[in-house]
């Protein structure tokens, strides 16, 4: 996914101006669709729009090779530090899944 950068501040949000130097933000880089769980919550009391999904996990994912983070729905239960990767984009939501770190053994 795309990350926008200026003055060392990286974000998945494309802002117009850099809050540090005031110049227009022009640097775009492509980073892998994977990262680690920085933190998470399990939402038990959903808004009406997501009532059919509850309970569901939302996590703040620290993207690989970047300072940027992204808020994503996660298909499984996770802990801080778990590796996750993009599974799909559903109705405008980034949905990540846990990477089975044991897979490499087989």
């Amino acid at each position: 996914m795309k990350v926008y950068e200026c003055c060392g501040i990286e974000s998945v949000t494309k802002k117009v101006f850099c809050s540090s130097c005031g110049k227009e933000i022009v640097n775009e880089t492509e980073v892998p669709d994977e990262g680690i769980v920085y933190s998470f919550t399990v939402i038990q009391v959903p808004p009406a729009q997501f009532a059919h999904l509850a309970p569901y996990t939302v996590a703040l994912v620290q993207l690989k090779n970047s300072n940027a983070k992204i808020t994503a729905r996660i298909l499984e239960n996770v802990e801080i530090g778990d590796q996750v990767s993009l599974d799909s984009i559903v109705d405008g939501a980034y949905v990540f899944k846990k990477v089975n770190t044991n897979e490499a053994v087989y």
Binding site: T41, I43, V45, V58, A72, Y94
Partner: peptide
């Protein structure tokens, strides 16, 4: 109008995510 909202983050959910990291 963001992917964050579409991910289903709620208002309390923000502070739940903060709390898990704070405890960590």
């Amino acid at each position: 109008s963001t992917t964050e909202k579409e991910a289903g983050l709620t208002f309390p959910g923000f502070f739940g995510t903060v709390a898990n990291r704070y405890m960590f």
